[in-house]
Design a protein around this nucleic acid. Structure first.
Lengths: 141, 141
DNA sequence: GTATACTTGACTATTTTAGTCAGGTTTATA
DNA sequence: TATAAACCTGACTAAAATAGTCAAGTATAC
């Protein structure tokens, strides 16, 4: 089980953005340099974040991206959803042919994965961008 | 983020095994049939489980595998460890060149991944095989 | 008008996953 | 003691996912 880079980068980049608290647009170039993420890859990620209205773009010179809501209102769940980072634990979907529907013996662990999924989602649901920024300021003191 | 099949299969197979509560050895063939997992793949997985002393093998006709401890004493953590299923959240290892050591700006989210890792490990640490079997019996009533 | 920065979509090398395949060894039982 | 059931090992591989790169734009502030 692992987190992919896309999700990690999205959170890292938004945390970077959040430090400016909606004042100035931040260019992807700056984020790329500070966080060590390829510019092209950032563009892919921000395209998704914009479509899900997590950020707003400001075009032209001195342009960049701004948060579309307050940092406190952006939950990590929202971020992961936007970049298609999913918590996949089991293939027993109702639609798919594979999986455990119908046969009782195949379901031994079905409940478990459901619980795990909720456990993780719960973590992301409780965390927001502001928490991240605060945590950083505190640790710097 | 996802769980790989190897980890899922390991847990499914052991849950199957646990139902027999250390009495009769269970053949991989049977598990393969009941759980719909390829025999060859099961052998790979059980080879690891045996090395980590989670199961014992019984050779010969009527042979198979038996749990090496009581179901209650086998935590999911142990199982995932045995089959190398890892909770990887971040690459900021102390040894690697990549990562965030040295530069403060790169660490914006470091703490977060640590927390997440602990959150998930905690879940696996609290669950054991007996829980799984019990859960199944209860649901069958 | 031009540099800066966003926007989009196609492409690709690498890695991981989820197995398969082949060729064993061991041992209970007939 | 023959043999079949079952374990055991390691090498191999197709397919999918990942982590990007590359190319060719468009919009806008100055």
């Amino acid at each position: 089980m692992k987190l992919t880079s896309k999700g990690r980068y999205a959170v890292m980049a938004l945390a970077d953005l959040a430090r400016f608290d909606n004042v100035n647009p931040v260019s992807l170039r700056d984020i790329s340099l500070r966080q060590g993420i390829s510019l092209d890859y950032l563009e892919q990620i921000f395209s998704k974040l914009r479509k899900k209205e997590i950020v707003q773009s400001v075009r032209g010179t001195q342009g960049g991206y701004v948060l579309n809501k307050k940092a406190k209102e952006i939950k990590l769940t929202n971020i992961f959803d936007a970049v298609d980072e999913k918590v996949k634990t089991v293939q027993c979907k109702k639609e798919s042919k594979k999986g455990c529907h119908g046969k009782s013996t195949k379901c031994l662990t079905h409940n478990l994965w459901d619980e795990l999924e909720n456990h993780i989602k719960n973590f992301f649901e409780k965390k927001n961008l502001e928490d991240l920024v605060k945590d950083n300021i505190e640790r710097r003191i």
